[in-house]
């Protein structure tokens, strides 16, 4: 016998699922939305996406290689996902240096400072996005109007998002029914014909990605459904109470970052709870806070803030919401 045998504790089999496969599964799920934004915004979308992904991966690589002097982990794909999500959360005509700053903040501040993958309390892409929103409010809110495929990059015609129009209009005392004429129809919203961040506009494409992820068991239904259902319920009550002041639930679900947030941002493994019950509480929190910010807050859109706020509650949810232990409710003897 000349083989030296390997010895390890049980189990001696492992599933074929890996972190890398999960991350690339998310990337695949994001492709329809990327295609949609290229369709609506042209090459700007491609440039922004490439810059963001490259900047995120490079930041992670450089920090690990030269600052921490540890093994680099860029091959796990998490930086690519962060890069894609960051790009999806900014306008497609954003100057490149701003995107790079966002990527450095996302990876450098929100992820690596806490110890890298798995240790960050807040969604890195959203931290980057919010940082940019506060630091560069003008550039971050000049949304290009979808104009079909074109090759220009920064020369796009800009306009307000549907949510911005409604928010501004209500403040000026206009009625919802009048404002509704100024925004695209619900069907157009569903296909993504509106101003907004690069990846958030096409609800149809995002839902397609979400179904793919649920099918591949990358995510469970709990968080997206909880976010969307709670937001729909809350806006529904407001709408029924006073349809002249509040927009209808479907409008809220289809506009802004609601779909992107619910399906891709809130479901980030690291910053979401681990039990189904916790996920539903977390998702409901996001839905409610989003609507609060949209209706009464200073910003017309609140998904990013809502997710970041609920991220802070995740450790608490993980600590107090436990799965049902086998044999717990049964009395002894």
């Amino acid at each position: 016998m000349n083989n030296i045998l390997n010895v390890s504790p049980s189990p001696h089999q492992q599933s074929s699922e890996t972190t890398r496969k999960l991350m690339f599964g998310v990337v695949i799920a994001l492709l329809p939305a990327l295609a949609a934004s290229v369709y609506y915004f042209g090459t700007g979308a491609v440039i922004v996406t490439l810059t963001s992904v490259l900047a995120c991966v490079a930041t992670e690589f450089l920090i690990q290689k030269y600052l921490l002097k540890t093994k680099t982990s860029i091959s796990d794909g998490s930086a690519i996902v962060t890069g894609l999500l960051l790009a999806f959360n900014v306008p497609s005509n954003l100057p490149l240096f701003i995107i790079v700053i966002g990527a450095v903040i996302s990876i450098g501040v929100a992820k690596m400072t806490f110890g890298g993958l798995g240790n960050n309390p807040f969604n890195p892409a959203l931290v980057g996005r919010v940082f940019l929103l506060i630091s560069f409010p003008v550039q971050m809110t000049s949304w290009p109007v979808p104009s079909g495929f074109k090759t220009g990059y920064t020369d796009a015609v800009t306009g307000a998002t549907p949510l911005g129009i409604i928010s501004e209009g209500v403040k000026n005392g206009e009625s919802i029914s009048a404002l509704m004429d100024k925004v695209p129809s619900h069907m157009q919203l569903f296909y993504g014909y509106m101003g907004g961040s690069m990846g958030e506009i096409a609800a149809a494409a995002l839902i397609l990605g979400g179904i793919f992820m649920i099918w591949r068991k990358i995510i469970t239904w709990h968080i997206p459904v909880a976010v969307l259902a709670s937001a729909a319920l809350f806006t529904g009550i407001l709408w029924l109470a006073d349809p002249t002041k509040f927009a209808d639930p479907l409008f809220h679900l289809l506009t802004g970052g609601m779909m992107l947030g619910a399906i891709f941002m809130a479901t980030d493994y690291v910053t979401s709870p681990m039990t189904p019950k916790g996920m539903i509480i977390y998702g409901t929190g996001i839905g409610v806070i989003t609507v609060l910010i949209r209706t009464w807050g200073a910003y017309p859109e609140g998904v990013s803030f809502a997710i970041l706020i609920m991220n802070a509650f995740v450790p608490l949810l993980n600590m107090y919401i436990k799965p049902r232990r086998f044999g717990k409710e049964v009395r002894h003897g």
């Binding site: 890996t18 972190t19 796990d76 998490s78 798995g118 493994y269 979401s272 681990m274 039990t275």
Partner: peptide, 10 residues
């Protein structure tokens, strides 16, 4: 690899 807190073990 580092734990990504996916909750699949739970």
């Amino acid at each position: 690899m580092p734990c990504i807190r996916c909750g699949k073990c739970s």
